[in-house]
């Protein structure tokens, strides 16, 4: 029963943040804010992906050639730049990651 309350609490918190600015559909942001919001996709997605590539354990830098997260991440960026295709990037990235992992005996 407690778990259900926790789940409902999590749902409420998450929903309120997602709905936060949809609640005022007629609100207009000043130009500076609008300009800043243009960078949200790049900023947030970079903040999610880059630490996962450079600090795969969440604590230590691993700038080495046996860091599969870094190698597969760089390959994915390359695939994205060349193919401009989301499917190729995700599928290719997964494939490269697991192949490298297997080749380096890290499975």
């Amino acid at each position: 029963m407690t778990y259900w309350w926790l789940i409902l609490g999590m749902a409420a918190i998450t929903f309120l943040m997602r709905y936060s600015l949809f609640a005022w559909p007629n609100l207009r942001f000043p130009p500076v804010v609008r300009q800043g919001l243009h960078y949200v996709p790049t900023a947030v997605l970079t903040a999610i992906v880059v630490p996962g590539m450079l600090l795969p354990d969440g604590a230590h830098w691993r700038l080495s050639l046996d860091n599969v997260y870094l190698l597969a991440g760089v390959m994915s960026i390359g695939i994205a730049a060349i193919s401009r295709s989301l499917l190729a990037t995700i599928g290719g990235g997964l494939l490269v990651f697991f192949l490298l992992r297997w080749a380096m005996g890290q499975m």
Partner: peptide, 11 residues
């Protein structure tokens, strides 16, 4: 971070 998504798509 969803607040930022909400703000970006708000217009």
């Amino acid at each position: 971070r969803h607040v930022l998504y909400s703000a970006t798509l708000q217009p």
